[in-house]
Amino acid sequence: MGGLEITSPEFVEKIREREPAAIERVVRSFTSHLHNAALGMGFDPETAEELAQDVCITFYDKAPGFEGRAHVRTFLFAILNNKAMEKRREYAKMQKHDPIDDVVSARFDKRGHWIGSPISPEEFALSAENAEILRQCVDSLPLSQRSAFMMKEVEGLKGEEICNVLEVSATNLGVLLFRARNRLRECIEGKHLKRK
């Protein structure tokens, strides 16, 4: 049982049949990943445990329909993402318009040149390395932007996998990352300027 690759067709078949040992192996392989990801989304440790448990139970319910086209990890993260969205009551994943788009636009003149320069990397790092400031800024991100940013920059997932988890197109993933990065950048730069 332990010898089968988790991605092998034989193992996928065991998942579909809900073979207890196969389900148990998936739970033991991914529970701590799910818990960490939930913390990264900003949930407290207790809620993160609750989410990890809910995801595994839903995984068991949906296991007969698992086709193995995506990695089982992608399947689990997609369930986590949906549960997290429900918890935050964030239903619209992609807003057509986000105020951060205007904030970024206002940084440039008609010809697309910077109106004022971003602050220097040294000054910026002073704010970014202050854990309290950084946490406030990360907490200000809408969940879908935060998840996209975390998966990309912290977990190092490939773009294609993030698209599958969030159920968005590559273009829309670009929009989410654009908004996440600029929202964080503006927040940190703003806090730096305020402190001066």
């Binding site: 990397p121 790092a125 970014a128 950084l134 940013f149 920059e153 912290v154 964080l184």
Partner: peptide, 21 residues
Amino acid sequence: RFMAQLRILREAVGRLNAGQA
């Protein structure tokens, strides 16, 4: 500068995440 800031962001958020419970 903008590009350097994005790199600093990535590293700082990575550290913040590694330090979480």
